[in-house]
Amino acid sequence: MSAELDPDAALMIRVKEGDREAFAELVNKYKQPVMNVVYRMLRDMTEAEDLAQNVFLQVYKSAHRYEVSAKFSTWLFTIVRNLCLNEIRRRSRHPADSLDIPHPEQEDQPWQQFEDKRTASAPNTLLHGELEEKVDEALADLPENQRTALLLCRQDELSYDDIAKVLGCSLSATKSLIHRGRETLKQKLKLYLRTGAWPESK
């Protein structure tokens, strides 16, 4: 894939040369898809924001390693997945530890002190309420690789091949993960999916 064909790769070439505007353009383009995946992987808005910022920081720092032949979104979501996995492993090792607890070296950072978190309410308080929370819960209960496969499947810019690259498995294994994840979701959400509404007893 040449840089002329992939505008993201062209931007990354500029980022490699230290162009902050090109980097800001990439951040603006991908911040929403990245946040969507990260939030549904971690289910914590504050941690999702921190991790999403860290994703883009890694993109900037690793720009010199980016191969123009690689599709940028595939490379980006590989970083997303790796950082999410690290965070999930960290949580499993230190269940009580949270990124909400400020690190001593971060306490003097103005943006950490004064950022208004009220503007970033959790998605389950928006639009769909309980329904969305149930879908999120069902997604969260899936094994990590099935959940990641399903979340990446929602990204228009990623093909099945790209998702397979991010997950580091074959195309057929990727489709199998998506299939199994969807089967589980269908079982869990069957009542809603059939009636179009959650039963009152739920």
């Binding site: 911040k31 929403q32 946040m35 999702a48 998605p123 928006l126 769909h128 969305e132 929602r154």
Partner: peptide, 11 residues
């Protein structure tokens, strides 16, 4: 599923 909110000053 709704998009996760992104702070306006994220970038």
């Amino acid at each position: 599923l709704s998009d996760a909110p992104v702070p306006s000053n994220f970038t």
